[in-house]
Design a protein around this nucleic acid. Structure first.
Lengths: 385, 385
DNA sequence: TGACATTAGTTTGAGACTCGTACTAAACAG
DNA sequence: CTGTTTAGTACGAGTCTCAAACTAATGTCA
C-alpha cells in the first residue's frame, strides 16, 4: 500500500503549501518555507507552478519593517472547484466552493412530489455546465444524503425519508454527469462545513450534532470525517439513552431520538408539526417564551440532550460539540441544561474543556460541507493540481 | 507540516515493506513488489538495507511451480525492540517485542506497598540493560497506566487507583532510563495488542472494552490508537446509561460503571470482593453455575453491557468489539444478552455486521500493547530503521 | 546622497530516490 | 542439453529537494 514515487513527493508538498495558505492565511514564499519546513527554493518552485496554474496569485507587496518587501501569496483557486449537493425530501441544494474557499455557485430547487434524485442530477448537470463554461475544472461532486451511506461503494444503504434503499448513487450520478461522484452522510458533511468555515474552525477534533427529523452526528478529526469501517459512524439517533418508556418511530423503546427528536419535542410541548423542522422549532420557542411550563419541559429535553453529548464526549474526547438544526432556535432553553450535564458527566471535564457551541452555517451546512469534501483530495495531496 | 524530502521517501517505502511483511507474512522480493506497488528494483534496494541492518533475513528458498525459486524474506527484527510497561496498583509488568512480533522479554514484579512508579523505573532500567547487552536497539518505551493520560506532554492527569495526579511520567522516566518514553492509557494499549496480535488482527476498526475495577475502552482505527484531542477518548466508565438509581464511586448517579463494573456485579450476585478482579469474577461464575437467580442477575448486567456496546458501535461503527478483563470469565452469562442488545440497538446492524468477541490475550494485553506502541513509529515510517 | 544592512526570492549544482529496461541467475520440462 | 519461466540485479534517466551562492529590493544612517 501507499507506493510513493518521487512525483508523489511534489504532490504532497504542494498540498502542504495549499493547506498552509488555506489554514493560516496568505503568506510570502519565505514565510511559507518557515511554516511548512520546506526549503525556500522548493517553495519557490511549487509556488511557481501554482501561480502558472492560476490557483494562487501574488497580492501587492507589503513592506516589512526592513529589507526587501515580500509579496504575499493568496489562494485564488478560481480554477479548481468542488461541487456539493444536498438531497432532501423537499429540496435539493447545490453549492460550489473553490480552492480559496469562496462560494462560486449556490442553488436550491424545491422537489414537488417527484424523485429528489432526478432533481439532484439535473442540478448537478446545470452546475457543471455553468462552471466549466467559465474555464473551471471541477474536482468532483459529493452528494450529502440523510441516511446510511456505504462509502466504500458509493451506495446509499438506507435513507428512510427519501425512500431509498441500496441505491448506487455514486455510480449512477457519476455516469450522468461525467464527474467523480462520492456519497456522504449529511451530518458528516455539515460537521465538515462547520470545521472548515463555521463554528469549529481551527479545532483538531469536533462533533456536530444535528436535529432535523431525526438526530445525526458527524465526527471530525484533524480536518477529516471519521467514518468508521463502513461509513455508518455517527448514527446516534437510536442509542439507548432516552426515556425507556418512549416509543421510537423505528419500533424500539428508549431511543435517544424518541426523547430529544423533533417529534418528541413537539409532542411534549404541545405544538403541531407544521412546516419545516426549523419553523416548527421556532413555534416551540415562541410557546416556551410565553409558557413557563413549556420552558421547563424543554429543560428536561436539554438534560437528555446533555447526557447524549456527554456520552459522545467521553467516547471521543473532542474539543467541541456543535449543535445544529432545530436545536439552534431552541438553544436558549436547552443549552444551560446541556452544559450542566456535560460538566457533570464528562470524565475529562476538569482536565480538558469541552465547548458546546451552536451551528453558524444553518441550512447551507450540508451542501457546503459536501463541496468541501469534494475538494479535500486536493488538500491531502491525493489529486494533483 | 509534514515536510517531505527525498530521504523521507525511503523511510516511507521501507515502512511499507515492513508493514507488508508484518501484516501479510513472509514474501519474496517480487511478491513484495506486487504487494506494495513498488518497482522490483526499489524493493531490492530496500530489502538489501534491511538485511544489512539485521531486521530481515532470507529463509530457505521455496521452489515455486516453475522458474527460479524465490527466497522468502522474514522479519527477524532481532535488532529493534519496543519496550512496554504496565503499571498497576499491585504489580508492574514489562514486555519487550521485536520487529518480528516475537516477545523478547517478559517480567512481572509485585508492588508491596511502595510507589509503583519506583518499581516501574527499576524494571525499565533492568530490561533496558538486559536487552542492550545483547546488541539490541530499543526504539523507546511506552508506559500503560490505568487513568487519564495527556499524550501531548506525557503527563498522567489522574490515575485514581495509583493515587497519581498531574505526574510527568514521560519526562521523569525518560530521564531515568535514557529512552524516549511515552505514556498511554492501559485500555488503549490492550486494544492495540488485540488488534496486532489478538482477537481483532486484520480488522480496520475495533473497540476494546475492559472491565477491571472500572470500565475502560480503547478505540483502534487502521492499526492506530484513536485518542481524541487530549488523549482522553474511551473514558466510558461514567457515561450515563446505567441504572439511574445506582450510585457510582465517583459520586454521580447512573454511571455505566455503577451498573456493570466489578463492584456492582459482585454486590448484585452477593459475592465478596476477594483477590484480583479475575479471581472475584471466577467466584461469580461459579456462583452463577450453581444458582439460577445469580445467572439471571448476570443476564441483566449483560443487557446494560450490551446497551453500552451498542452505543459505542453507533457512534464509531467498528468491525468488532472485544470484551476483556473480568468480562471474559463471565462471558457465558453475559454474551447472549450483549449480542441481543447489539442487534436490537445498532442502527447499521442489517448492513454491516458487528462482531462481539472475547479478549484472547488476557492480563498481558496492556504491556504487550504498550510494547507494540513503542514500535509503531518504525512501522509508520516516522523513525528510520 | 550613497554605502551598508537586511530581508525576499532565484539560480545552480549535488545528492537521494524511484522507475523501466535490459541483463544475469536458477530452477524445471522435454 | 536446449528452451522456458520466474527471481533478482545493474544501470541510466528522470524527478525531486536542499544548501549555498547570488541577485533584487527596500530601509538606515552617516
Amino acid at each position: 500500500m501507499t507506493p510513493v514515487a518521487t512525483e508523489d513527493l511534489r504532490r504532497q508538498n504542494t498540498a502542504s503549501v495549499l493547506r498552509s495558505l488555506r489554514h493560516d492565511g496568505p503568506a510570502t514564499r519565505t514565510e511559507l518555507a518557515r511554516r511548512t519546513g520546506l526549503a525556500k527554493a522548493t517553495v519557490g518552485t511549487i509556488v511557481g507552478a501554482l501561480v502558472d496554474g492560476g490557483h494562487v496569485s501574488e497580492s501587492d507587496a507589503v513592506p516589512a519593517s526592513r529589507g526587501r518587501p515580500g509579496r504575499p501569496l493568496v489562494l485564488t483557486g478560481g480554477m479548481l472547484v468542488g461541487l456539493g449537493l444536498e438531497v432532501n425530501v423537499d429540496y435539493v441544494s447545490a453549492v460550489a466552493i473553490d480552492l480559496g474557499g469562496a462560494v462560486r455557485l449556490e442553488r436550491t430547487v424545491a422537489v414537488d412530489g417527484g424523485d429528489p434524485y432526478d432533481v439532484a442530477v439535473g442540478l448537478a448537470q446545470l452546475a457543471a455546465a455553468e462552471l466549466t463554461g467559465e474555464g473551471i475544472r471541477l474536482t468532483g461532486a459529493t452528494v450529502a444524503v440523510p441516511g446510511l451511506v456505504d462509502r466504500r461503494n458509493g451506495v446509499v444503504a438506507m435513507a428512510p425519508n427519501l425512500g431509498w434503499r441500496g441505491r448506487p448513487v455514486a455510480d449512477d450520478m457519476g455516469e450522468a454527469t461525467g464527474l467523480p461522484v462520492a456519497v456522504e452522510n449529511d451530518a458528516n458533511c455539515a460537521a465538515l462545513a462547520e470545521a472548515r468555515r463555521g463554528a469549529t474552525v481551527g479545532l483538531g477534533q469536533s462533533v456536530y450534532l444535528t436535529g432535523t427529523v431525526g438526530i445525526g452526528a458527524g465526527v471530525i478529526s484533524d480536518g477529516a470525517i471519521v467514518r468508521g469501517t463502513s461509513g455508518f459512524a455517527g448514527e446516534v439517533g437510536h442509542i439507548p439513552l432516552g426515556d425507556p418508556a418512549a416509543s421510537c418511530g423505528c419500533g424500539r423503546q428508549g431511543c435517544w431520538e424518541a426523547s430529544v427528536g423533533l417529534r418528541a419535542v413537539l409532542a411534549a410541548v404541545g405544538v403541531s408539526e407544521d412546516g419545516t423542522p426549523l419553523e416548527a422549532a421556532e413555534a416551540v420557542s415562541r410557546r416556551a417564551a410565553a409558557d413557563p411550563g413549556a420552558a421547563e419541559t424543554l429543560e428536561g429535553v436539554g438534560v437528555l440532550l446533555g447526557k447524549g453529548v456527554a456520552t459522545m464526549a467521553n467516547i471521543l474526547n473532542p474539543d467541541a460539540v456543535v449543535l445544529g438544526g432545530f436545536f439552534v432556535p431552541l438553544a436558549p432553553y436547552l443549552l444551560p441544561a446541556v452544559v450542566r450535564e456535560v460538566e457533570a458527566h464528562v470524565t475529562a471535564a476538569p482536565y480538558a474543556t469541552l465547548d458546546v457551541r451552536l451551528s453558524t452555517l444553518g441550512l447551507r451546512a450540508a451542501a457546503a460541507g459536501a463541496a468541501e469534501e469534494a475538494l479535500t483530495q486536493v488538500f491531502t495531496g491525493a489529486t494533483a493540481v
